[in-house]
Design a protein around this nucleic acid. Structure first.
Lengths: 210, 210
DNA sequence: TAGATTGTTAATCGATTAACAATC
DNA sequence: TAGATTGTTAATCGATTAACAATC
């Protein structure tokens, strides 16, 4: 169990988990081989084994992996043993979509939503009442929510994040297009929709030429 | 102008562009230095210069870059010279959010939306009428849309993508949690919201330990 | 010219890959 | 045992970094 795990490896663990869950649904059988998992993820089998080996040994040489045990192991590695509480800040298009999305995903649960628009504060989205963004810190701390989705305009993002950090949030999924400053014990993941679209246009242009 | 550009470099060009646009708004001045751009992006200045040098020389030694010229250069590099037509497939939470988001972004324009739910087909979202997903190919080809957003359930994604490819789409922003098979001249970018959340939980767990 | 910042190079760092020894 | 697949190693590949020569 090494100390520094490539981020790509952690991402792939998440992919493996999803594949295994699909395999379970398809009655794939109890024994799973790195070759099959690799095929499903469109990668090579040595990557699968390399990734898993960062965290221990999970298979039997000459045989393969026990589907159910591997699934549980990956869940444990990723920390998906209990439901995670999520707060959503910014109830525009993206924020609303995330609330809807997370309601249909198990493993995560939206426990609060915030906005600074008086028109929205007090209204409900599903079971969640929209709270005033000035109260992010106390409400988040009270609920013990560890994860936050930030879907506010870029120029408000850092202010919101400061409040979340004070409210003891440890992980942030950020849709705002600015780099966020957070303490060392808080991690941020960036979803940069505009950047992704621009990378697409770059690739389209490039391939047209070659 | 080298042949293979790191993907990270292209992503950063998009960041630079955004920073420059913010600087323009803040009346930053006409001359821009790699040091300042780097600071804004929270990276080091040699990365900025290295990234730009893949595509040519844009600055003046001892002086810096002309803000406006650099902006235009990056736009040209990324292929952002004209509005790009986008079709959105899947009008659920995410699809709807993307339609809303793109309506407020210039450079991209949603020209069609598709779903396979009879309840939704024929309805409108803003100015866009929701079309039947069986007609993806002819409608997309007709509109000459090069980019598609795929926001359908995972098990429908590949089918939808096949239709888009037939309709001459060249770039796909995919929110479905499956690897997509596309021809060489089509690029796919993956937005894996669930994976991002799982990477967050992994990081949270890890940092708590250390 | 002197001062400054770019563009580029070489060294470092880290991830991926492929091959194979270990072993069920 | 023979056959098979894992876990791990060494080699390759590619990106980042830092330093500096070029030059405005």
């Amino acid at each position: 169990m090494k100390d520094l795990i490539p981020e790509a490896t952690v991402r792939r663990l998440s992919h493996y988990l999803r594949c295994i869950e699909m395999m379970e649904k398809c009655c794939y059988g109890e024994n799973l081989q790195s070759k099959d998992l690799a095929r499903m993820c469109s990668i090579s089998d040595s990557v699968v084994r390399r990734d898993l080996s960062y965290f221990g040994t999970f298979g039997i040489k000459g045989v393969g992996y026990d589907l159910k045990r591997l699934k549980d192991s990956i869940k444990r590695i990723l920390g998906l043993t209990e439901k995670k509480k999520v707060v959503v800040v910014g109830v525009g298009n993206i924020g609303r979509a995330l609330i809807g999305y997370l309601s249909r995903v198990d493993g995560f649960e939206v426990v609060a939503a915030f906005d600074n628009d008086p028109q929205k504060i007090g209204k409900k989205i599903g079971k969640i009442k929209i709270e005033d963004a000035v109260n992010i810190t106390p409400i988040t701390a009270n609920l013990n929510a560890e994860i936050a989705v930030v879907a506010v305009p870029s120029d408000e993002a850092q202010k919101v994040v400061n409040r979340l950090v004070k409210g003891r949030v440890k992980g942030i999924l950020n849709f705002a297009l600015v780099p966020l400053k957070v303490p060392d014990d808080v991690t941020v993941r960036y979803i940069e929709l505009l950047t992704e679209l621009e990378v697409l246009t770059y690739n389209i242009k490039k391939r047209r030429k070659s």
